[in-house]
């Protein structure tokens, strides 16, 4: 289902600059004293897509989001949100945005239901019954005092708060933090449904595995700069896979010669197993076709080719020198 959605959105996205982008950030700079939190960040998020930003702590993810909400003011550059410059934007713009802060601090003495009613009074209208529906989906008890909720349940309350008025744009800072794996899946489903309804989602995470299922595009942020912007498919194609195979009737040195010459095979290590078979362990990047062709001559006893490890390729991008963003 998600594959269908991805092809739809690539059609919508179009090449280069999109005048009707949900978010259009140009050369955004933010200086806090001597610390430059954002160092010329430029990107666009097309309407109806899910855009993820990944980066280590302190990379500037939260700063970008706060600037979009006009909670902080950029030192330079411009951010346009839903066609309106975010700086000093009026309440009408924020009514169209749902925001989940990275450090979610909620008033503790009231119940979840009352707290949500308050935000609905400010930013509504909220469709009748929608809050209940979202709370039931996430398994959240709205009648407990907020201060007695666990971190995960507070996070759910924050998610409901962001989603409840069906905003055109969702800005979610580390939305899955504190959620158990089951709830993470439910949340990612909510993201995909939001996109299918035409809502735009801009979310951040410090690990790609949390959002790779939901995001159409991923920007990698490091030290206040965007290192690269890729679709998840593109990242997947450049990502490395770990492989392990066992073949009989071949010596480890021959196996090493066969595999070592293939493009994309690195960290190859061939050895003899206790059963006198040859075992190869390696990482593989890029297309797998030539690899599959090469091993077709072998008498395979075992083959493990893992899912591409996006985490590893993202970490590699963190450590390589920053590229000039397109």
């Amino acid at each position: 289902m998600s594959h269908v959605a991805i092809t739809q959105t690539t059609d919508v996205r179009g090449p280069g600059h999109t005048p009707d982008a949900a978010i259009d950030v140009v050369d955004l700079v933010k200086q806090f004293g001597h610390n430059r939190a954002l160092n010329g960040v430029t990107f666009q998020v097309a309407r109806g897509t899910v855009f993820g930003v990944i980066g280590p702590n302190g990379a500037g993810k939260t700063t970008i989001m706060r600037a979009l909400l006009d909670i902080i003011r950029p030192s330079g550059g411009q951010a346009t949100v839903l066609g309106t410059p975010s700086r000093n934007a009026g309440p009408q713009l924020r009514r169209r945005i749902g925001y989940l802060p990275g450090e979610l601090i909620l008033e503790g003495r009231t119940s979840g239901r009352r707290l949500l009613a308050h935000y609905a009074d400010i930013s509504g209208p909220v469709p009748a019954g929608h809050v209940q529906e979202l709370a039931e989906r996430l398994g959240l008890d709205l009648d407990r005092p907020v201060r007695k909720l666990s971190k995960g349940n507070k996070q759910k309350l924050g998610i409901v708060q962001a989603f409840m008025h069906r905003p055109e744009l969702l800005v979610l800072d580390e939305p899955t933090s504190g959620l158990d794996p089951l709830m993470q899946q439910e949340f990612l489903k909510m993201i995909r449904e939001a996109r299918d309804r035409g809502q735009t989602v801009f979310l951040s995470s410090h690990v790609i595995s949390e959002i790779q299922q939901a995001a159409d595009e991923v920007a990698i942020l490091r030290d206040g700069r965007i290192v690269t912007i890729n679709s998840v498919e593109e990242l997947r194609s450049t990502a490395v896979r770990h492989l392990r195979l066992v073949a009989s009737g071949v010596r480890p040195t021959d196996l090493a010669a066969l595999l070592g010459g293939l493009e994309g095979v690195t960290t190859l290590n061939c050895s003899l197993t206790p059963t006198n078979d040859a075992e190869a362990v390696a990482t593989l990047s890029g297309e797998i076709a030539s690899f599959v062709q090469a091993i077709s001559v072998l008498q395979l006893r075992d083959l493990v080719l893992e899912e591409p490890d996006l985490e590893e390729s993202v970490l590699k991008l963190y450590s390589t020198p920053a590229l000039v963003p397109q």
Binding site: Y99, E103, L106, E107, Y119, I122, S123
Partner: peptide, 13 residues
């Protein structure tokens, strides 16, 4: 306390 941030992210000035 961090609560004002969320209030200001809603439809208020």
């Amino acid at each position: 306390s961090g609560r004002l941030e969320l209030t200001l992210a809603h439809a208020v000035t």
